[in-house]
């Protein structure tokens, strides 16, 4: 198993050098989005508007953190099951999304779209949210705070462990 440290955002070139099964320790900014945030993003796009962030340099993390306890950097942070986002993912890949982090298998349509757009799907270990939280150095609500855990949160990773699942 190769273990590679990488800085986000990942470029098409750095993605091209990676293989399924590689373990990556990634550092830098990611945005969380799960079911409700995806629905909202797609609604904005379908209305012909643009998203309030640059999708092409975004690392999207399927995650709904638990609340941040007083005096801590963040609560429990780990991946949610990715297949629920499959219905919206090809459209986001079409618009330039390159890297997604989640857990579990993706649909054939998503696998094809990932390969077509030279993107990548990474998996983090599910149910290891206290361990993964130790690899977060900042956690702030970024967009749509009224959605609670389903809001888009901006996280800063420091050597956050993931595995390359689809590339």
């Amino acid at each position: 198993m190769r273990i590679i440290s990488l800085q986000l955002p990942l470029t098409e070139n750095s993605i091209a050098n990676l293989s399924q099964g590689d373990k990556l320790l990634i550092s830098g900014e990611v945005l969380t989005a799960r079911d409700a945030a995806h629905q909202k993003m797609i609604q904005i796009l379908d209305e012909g508007k643009s998203l309030p962030f640059d999708l092409t340099s975004t690392t999207l993390f399927y995650c709904g953190p638990s609340p941040k306890p007083l005096g801590k950097i963040c609560g429990a942070i780990g991946p949610t099951t990715s297949y629920r986002m499959d219905v919206w993912t090809p459209q986001l890949l079409e618009l330039g999304l390159k890297v997604m982090i989640g857990k579990g298998e993706r649909s054939i349509e998503v696998v094809d779209a990932i390969r077509k757009h030279k993107a990548m799907y990474l998996v983090a270990v599910g149910g290891a949210a206290a361990y993964l939280a130790r690899h977060i150095v900042s956690c702030e609500t970024f967009l749509w705070p009224e959605m609670g855990t389903e809001a888009i949160h901006k996280l800063i990773f420091c050597n956050f462990p993931v595995y390359v699942a689809i590339v």
Binding site: M1, S66, P69, A76, T80, V125, G126, A130, R134, Y163
Partner: peptide, 29 residues
């Protein structure tokens, strides 16, 4: 399998981290 061992190691660490840091075992409580 090296990969399976690595994942299980992460799960073992998680049990320790949750207790030491008072952070939930999983974000889905």
């Amino acid at each position: 399998s090296e990969l399976a061992k690595d994942v299980l190691n992460c799960l073992v660490e998680n049990v320790h981290c949750a207790k030491e840091d008072s952070i939930p075992l999983c974000q889905d409580t």
